[in-house]
């Protein structure tokens, strides 16, 4: 076996922050495309509202709105470079304030929603009967990721905008500087690692419905006519 450290490589960091993310992203794109075109029938939200809708209301609303909020928070914090937000007139202090309170609120919404989701499925025999192993894996993985996210936001207050963010942006232009990740706190590393685990299993879970947000509904005519074999 080649000892990469001899050549100046940090094997562990190289694996976790370059090799593994690319494997995950590759599975994500190929897996989703394959499932969408080869098994379109399996592509759905897997709604269980028909079986139980009372507890679903707080659970689903907290979870979904929380996660949408958190998603945009991550865009601002990770995807948009620090220099851009500063140029927009958002000071370090303002950013930190927004990230701390906004991020905590969104994170807690998601965690609360997930706990309710899990409780709901465990206590209702109808739901228990239709919940698949993959549903459980997805739920608990999401719970782990978001719990870690909330802990990181509240207790760590680590400045990821100089380390994690540039590394993450580098991934998408094929120049990931994994050395930036070396000194990131372990809890944040775990958060990021689990996100890529989720990315890798994403095509095989119910989460695929995220890719089908029905934007075209806004523009289409109300009544759809189709001709046979167009």
């Amino acid at each position: 076996m080649i000892d990469l450290s001899k050549c100046g490589y940090d094997a562990a960091n190289l694996f976790f922050w370059v090799v593994f993310p690319y494997i995950a992203i590759t599975i994500f794109f190929i897996g989703n495309a394959f499932r969408f075109f080869a098994f379109p029938y399996t592509w759905r939200t897997k709604s269980s509202e028909i079986l139980e809708k009372k507890m679903l209301r707080p659970a689903s609303l907290l979870f979904h709105y929380g996660i949408i909020f958190a998603f945009f928070g991550h865009i601002i914090g990770i995807v948009i470079p620090k220099s851009w937000t500063e140029e927009m007139g958002i000071s370090e202090h303002t950013y930190h304030f927004l990230a701390l309170y906004g991020g905590t609120a969104a994170g807690l919404m998601v965690v609360a929603g997930l706990v309710l989701f899990i409780y709901r499925r465990l206590t209702n025999p109808r739901l228990l009967a239709i919940t698949t192993t993959m549903d459980w894996i997805t739920l608990f993985l999401l719970l782990a990721i978001t719990t870690l996210g909330v802990i990181n936001t509240i207790f760590l207050q680590y400045d990821y905008r100089d380390t994690v963010a540039p590394w993450f942006r580098g991934l998408w232009v094929f120049t990931p500087n994994y050395t930036l990740m070396a000194d990131v706190p372990i809890l944040l590393k775990l958060h990021i690692f689990l996100v890529f685990v989720l990315t890798a299993i994403f095509p095989f879970t119910r989460l695929v419905h995220i890719l089908s947000i029905p934007f075209s509904y806004i523009f289409r005519r109300p009544i759809v006519y189709r001709e046979r074999c167009p």
Binding site: W43, T45, S212, P214, Y217, V224
Partner: peptide, 25 residues
């Protein structure tokens, strides 16, 4: 929302495209 339900142009029968249906309810 998905446009999975449609009315057949030739005879007006309303059907659900199972592959297109995402279960939005």
């Amino acid at each position: 929302p998905s446009g999975a339900l449609y009315k057949r142009n030739e005879d007006g029968i309303v059907l659900v495209d199972q592959d297109n249906c995402k279960g939005w309810r």
